Every structure is written in structure tokens, then in C-alpha cells.
Computed example of a mutant assay.
Amino acid sequence: MYCKRCGELLSSDVNFCPSCGAPKESYESESLVPIERSENEELSLFVGKKADVYHRKWGKATNKAGWNWAAFFLGIFWLGYRKMYRFLLIFLGIYLLVDLITWPFYLFLDPVTMDKVSPLIDLLNYVIGIASSVTLGIYGNYFYYKHAKEKINNIKQKFPNHPDIQAYEITKRGGTSWGTFFILLAAAILYAIVIVGIIIFITFQDTEYPGETSSVNENSSIADDFSQNSSIDNWGGSAGDSETSIQTIDEVLQDYMKENKLALTAEDVQYDMENNLDEDFAIAGTAKLDTYYNYGFADASKENFSVSINPVDGGEPWNLYFDRKDFADLYTELKNQGEVDLVATGIIPSEIYDPAQGNMAFAEQVTWDSNE
């Protein structure tokens, strides 16, 4: 037995409703005649305040569809607000499936390949987003009508001879839910924070990414000089090195500059940078992978990896940015060995130069000898 005022289930041993306090009534002793409400009246109870708006929308379209701007712009938030939880789970499932399919590409593909795949993934996400918005814009009213009718029919079947309870349950099951709306909003914000965090993490890991491929532009005759004349003892440039060792390093650097027709060294450029922009220069020293990207080179991490070089002449360190594709072998060597001794050709493009940048340049050519 149910309370006629609020619909609370009543036990046989109570005289008053524990929920609303109304006196218990014996339905067995009453002749209950069901009240037949019209469809519009039932829908009005279910929709609530905006019932007249939805009656107009449903009345204009033969299939109860028509355009719904709120559903188009708010999407799943509108579904949650209107308590359409089944449709909400369907759309969330579609979004989650797309993410499960696409995110492994971000996590496991190397940056070079990802540059090619990323536009396709962005296009897929864009198409899914637009398609879902348009679908809800066109069919949102129809979905809401079907949802309302299903709920109303279930309630009428459950309480066939209790019109007051039917009205209470229809009103309770219908209406809106700001709580669901804000829960979805908070979840969306949290999800966005997680995604941004993953993207930042991947970005900072670019210089440590294992999947680099391609070839390096290497000068064979200078590489032979390294293998014959270089070692960790005579290529470090430390204070304890002998004069003969320093001369050997100078010879290697001079041979490299002569063969590549270079007139400037890193030291020359460092002290007169503005007058040596767009000019090739040679640098020799001990190199290791770095994560420094700044000034005009701030966006270079996607296509270039950063290498910190301590010059053999004891000058200030340089950061050279090597193309990931062309110098993949050097990247692998640096990652495996930690440090290598190299001679490279650098250049500072005038279009990205910043007077405050310090010793930063793009690499054009390199040869090296590993510290083993």
C-alpha cells in the first residue's frame, strides 16, 4: 500500500505515513476510479517549468524532433541536466572509445611519425564532436520525448490505480538536475587537466624518446681523425691535459673547418653574435642531451632535440638543436653513451635571434667520437 499524498510505501501496521504524516487510508475500502490524464498533461508533469516550450517543439515536428539549441551547444551537459542518463552513457561511451583508440598513438609513436598522424586524429575528434552536437541538435527533442514517454508508461504500469502517486512519481522522475550538470562539468574539467598533464609530460619527454629514425650527415675523413687521434683523455679539455693533447684537438677542429670551408668558431660568434647571424661556424666539445628550449628556439622541440656542448677551448657552453630526422644516429649515440665528443657546424638564423638568448644555434652538420 502507498501513501496517496507522497507515494511512500506503507506497512500494514502504521496509521500515518512516516514520510509526509498523512493518515493511512484503506484502498481496499475505496472504489478507486483511475483518472485519465491526457498525454500533454502527463508530459507537462514530467518536463516541469519548460513544458510549454517542449509542447511547441513537439507539436511543430511530426516525429517530435526539430532543432534544439541547448542540446546542440551543451551536448552531454544537456542530457545530464534533463536526466537522460541512458543517452548520456551512450555518448560518453562513444567519446571514451575514440580516446581509447587514439591515445596510444600519442603515447607510443615517435614525434616524427606523430606529426603525420596527429592531424588525422584531430580531424577525427573534430568530426565526432560536430556529429554528436548536430545529432543532439536535430534529434534531442525526439530523444527527450521518447525518454519521457518511457518513464511515464513505466510509472503508470507500476501504479495503475493510484493517480496521485502517478503524478508524484512522474514529477519526481522528470524535471531537471543541476547536480548532474555540475558533476559532469567538474568531471570534464578534471579530464581536461589530466589530458593537458599527459601532453606536457610527453612534450618534456621528447628528448628522451626512443623512436628516432633516419640518417646523419657525417664527414668521413674527419670521423677517421677522431678514431685515430681522439680519446676521453685528450678530448675533454680539462686543466690536466698535456699540451700535445690540446694541439691534437686543435688539429681536428682546424681540419674540420678547412674541409668545410668555415672561417668562424663558436668563440668568434659568441663575442660578436649580432654581426655573425646566418653565418656557419664550427664548434668542438663534449656533448650531452639537454631539455633547454627558449627564446626563438622555444618551439623547436617537436622537430629538433637539444644538445648541450662544452667547448674544448673552455668557453661558455652552447645549446645546439639537431634535426630529429637527419641526426637520429647522434641522438641514439648520446642516449646510449651519455656523452660524446663532437665537431659540428652551427648557425643562428637572424629571423629568430633574440639578443638575450645566449649561446643557441641550429646544427647543420656533425661528426663525433663516442667516449668509450
Rank of each mutant, 00 (worst) to 15 (best):
S215E: 05
N219H: 03
Y321D: 04
S221W: 07
M1K: 14
E279W: 07
D206I: 03
F72A: 14
G7D: 02
R86N: 07
G315H: 00
N229R: 15
P34R: 14
Y126C: 14
E267C: 10
I35M: 09
D329K: 13
I249S: 06
K60H: 15
G296S: 01
E372R: 10
G129F: 15
S370C: 10
Y106C: 02
L9I: 15
T176Q: 15
L120W: 07
P349G: 12
E267G: 02
L330D: 00
I193L: 12
Y271H: 07
K146F: 13
S350P: 06
L79D: 09
S301Y: 09
K49S: 10
R37Y: 09
T367V: 08
Y2D: 05
Y54W: 08
I183V: 14
Q205D: 07
K302Q: 11
G129C: 14
S350K: 15
Y293N: 04
I198C: 01
G7E: 01
T171D: 11
F46Q: 01
P119S: 04
P119E: 13
G175I: 10
A148K: 06
V33G: 04
Y81C: 00
D268Q: 02
K60I: 13
T203M: 06
A186P: 11
D278Q: 03
E30A: 13
Q337W: 04
D268C: 08
G7K: 01
I202S: 05
D268W: 02
V252R: 05
F87Q: 03
N260H: 07
I199A: 10
R56P: 02
F305T: 04
V343C: 01
C20N: 15
N125Q: 13
S11Y: 13
I170F: 08
T265W: 11
M114R: 07
I138F: 07
M84D: 01
S19H: 15
I138H: 05
G296N: 00
T207C: 09
L289Q: 00
N260S: 00
I35D: 03
V216Y: 09
Y85W: 11
S230W: 06
E42Q: 01
W318L: 02
S370Q: 05
K335H: 12
F72L: 11
Q254I: 14
Y271I: 08
E251F: 13
E279M: 12
E212Y: 03
I193G: 10
A186I: 09
A61R: 12
P210E: 10
F362M: 11
K57E: 14
T176M: 12
F362I: 04
G21I: 01
V47C: 05
T113M: 15
Y139V: 02
T332I: 10
T176P: 03
V340R: 00
I352K: 02
T345W: 11
D268T: 07
D164H: 09
A328G: 06
S133V: 03
P34S: 09
S221K: 06
L43S: 02
P18Q: 06
N15K: 04
F181P: 13
R173Q: 14
F226R: 00
P160N: 15
Q270Y: 12
D224C: 12
G315P: 03
L342P: 00
I130L: 13
V112H: 10
N217W: 06
I165E: 07
W67R: 15
E39P: 01
L97E: 08
I128T: 10
C3W: 01
K49R: 14
E243M: 10
M1T: 12
I76M: 13
L136D: 00
S26L: 14
S26G: 09
Y145L: 08
